[in-house]
């Protein structure tokens, strides 16, 4: 039984290492400027934990699988020096990893969006996202809760008849953004907690009712991606998503004009 268990442990360890090494299943390719930092932090952590994982499993397997010795074990109640040394090394390594991740975190959250960022409002509800661009005037017209009506397509409760700043606002169901230009999203929820997650962007942020949460990022590759909800928000949670379209600056302008014409 000892041999079998030791073999199983080694096999599980080898299989895990191979699957990580060969990247059989892996992250989707990164398309944001901050993503390289996330991937780098992950790789570093993977190396550290990978070494610890393999070492612990192999020592364990060795202890189980080796030929049992006769007689009694040595009466050994510990070794404070080794224990302290290990605690210090482990502590320093783990804290080092956490501190190392500071740079990426700071780029995501401590530094605000640059002034030239494209500002877009994101409104989440059970179970959809709606997006609003401020239009040429750069101002989001006021929202009137009483006017919000999904059946008539007034997702943001706009009243263009009375509010001049609402007249040029563009409301879409697709998040279209230009490539290589900072984007700032203002996340709002109408009902329960939702989330904004695009695996390729390495961005995830809960959308909390009662709060406007700003996030910013710069996409580096054009293409069509998917925004998905990651916070359990009700029965349609699994199907809550919206398309993300990353376009060149010129195509983005065209696209936005087309959306404006549909309003």
């Amino acid at each position: 039984m000892g041999k079998l268990l030791a073999f199983t442990m080694v096999a599980a360890t080898v299989a895990t290492v191979v699957l990580f090494w060969r990247r059989v299943w892996w992250f989707p390719p990164n398309i944001s400027t901050v993503g390289a930092g996330v991937d780098g932090d992950f790789r570093l952590t993977l190396w550290v934990t990978g070494i610890l994982f393999v070492a612990a499993q192999l020592i364990l397997a060795y202890c189980i699988g080796r030929r049992p010795k006769a007689g009694r074990a040595r009466y050994l109640t510990g070794n404070l020096r080794m224990e302290v040394a290990w605690a210090v090394v482990a502590g320093a390594t783990f804290i080092g990893l956490a501190l190392h991740s500071y740079r990426t975190w700071a780029r995501m959250y401590f530094i605000g969006a640059p002034p030239n960022a494209v500002k877009i409002q994101v409104e989440a509800e059970q179970f959809a996202y709606w997006f609003r661009y401020p239009g040429p005037d750069g101002v989001f017209g006021p929202m009137h809760l009483r006017l919000i009506n999904d059946a008539t397509g007034n997702y943001f409760g706009l009243d263009p008849a009375r509010d001049p700043t609402s007249r040029d606002d563009i409301v879409t169901a697709t998040l279209g953004i230009p490539v290589d230009r900072p984007v700032e999203l203002l996340l709002m929820s109408r009902d329960v907690i939702h989330s904004f997650y695009v695996p390729e962007l390495r961005i995830q942020q809960d959308i909390v009712p009662g709060m406007v949460i700003p996030i910013h990022f710069t996409a580096t590759r054009t293409g069509n991606y998917e925004i998905v909800c990651t916070q359990l928000c009700g029965l349609g949670h699994y199907a809550m998503r919206a398309p993300l379209k990353v376009m060149t600056e010129a195509k983005f302008k065209q696209w936005l004009a087309r959306q404006a014409a549909e309003q």
């Binding site: 932090d41 952590t45 934990t49 994982f53 612990a56 190392h100 997650y197 995830q204 916070q231």
Partner: peptide, 24 residues
């Protein structure tokens, strides 16, 4: 064995930027 396999992944989730990718 299982505690090691499960526990070490906690280090990833403890780093905020990595957790952003892996959360939920």
């Amino acid at each position: 064995s299982i505690f090691v396999s499960g526990g070490l992944s906690g280090i990833f989730l403890a780093e905020p930027p990595v957790d952003v990718q892996l959360h939920a």
